[in-house]
């Protein structure tokens, strides 16, 4: 028997396309963020609030993924920015090839901020690099505060945790301190923001985070996103 060392990633083809996408994003100064959460945590609501707050001349675009329906794209298109639905037809995550295919027809030099809203799922999307600058995980207070311990992979790989629906805190037995502590046990350096898409609380911090993150990609631009 002859053992041949391979030493390559199982998802090397996905990673190859993701690396190409990342190089394109960087070359054109596009900040690409990959939003991941359970179904119903509020990714689309967060994007609605984000798009609503931005002047129409901001160069923002959204790719939104779901297994079926273009409901989310319809919700997000109301704000006048380019939005495309990626319907996976059953696949539980987006992969880099889907992103490459759906970016066709869009001019990256005219997009400063590209949001990718992944399929609602805390497990599978964590395995697929989409060429993003950062993953952002959304967790809502109607879920358990132990989610970071139950689904550690995505919390480990995300740069930012957005704790959403904080307006519901008086009505649900969600231990915010425990949620923060659990997220930091898995990923000590994770950044954490607390927001309510319903009341707008904390959204300013999110928009400021986006602005700082975008400047890190494109330092020559000085105007703010908001």
């Amino acid at each position: 028997m002859n053992r041949v060392p391979l030493e390559q990633k199982v998802l090397s083809e996905n990673d190859r396309i993701a690396a190409e996408l990342r190089a394109h994003f960087q070359a054109h100064g596009t900040l690409c963020l990959n939003l991941i959460s359970s179904p119903g945590s509020g990714k689309t609501s967060l994007l609605e609030c984000t798009l609503e707050s931005m002047p129409r001349d901001r160069r923002v675009a959204v790719l939104t993924g779901d297994i079926q329906t273009d409901n989310d794209a319809a919700r997000l298109k109301r704000f006048g920015f380019p939005v495309k639905q990626i319907t996976t037809g059953g696949t539980c995550h987006l992969d880099a090839r889907m992103i490459e295919r759906h970016l066709a027809g869009w001019s990256l030099p005219s997009i400063d901020l590209l949001f990718i809203e992944n399929v609602g799922n805390l497990v599978c999307p964590s395995s697929y690099d989409l060429g993003e600058a950062a993953k952002v995980v959304v967790l809502s207070v109607t879920e358990g505060e132990d989610k970071p311990l139950k689904y550690p992979s995505i919390f480990l790989k995300s740069e930012l945790l957005v704790l959403n629906k904080i307006d519901l805190l008086p009505y649900v037995p969600f231990d915010m301190n425990a949620a923060v502590e659990n997220a930091r046990r898995v990923h000590p350096g994770i950044e954490i923001l607390k927001v309510s898409c319903l009341t707008g609380k904390g959204l300013h911090d999110w928009l400021t985070w986006l602005d700082h993150r975008r400047r890190a990609i494109k330092p020559v631009e000085t105007e703010a996103l908001t």
Partner: peptide
């Protein structure tokens, strides 16, 4: 993730996320 040797909290992940093809036997 606290260091068991010096108790420092500044630590980084170096393993546990692998999804690699290691070898093929022919």
């Amino acid at each position: 993730s606290q260091c068991p040797q010096c108790a420092d909290m500044k630590t980084e992940c170096i393993g546990g996320q692998e999804l690699d093809l290691a070898y093929l036997e022919v």
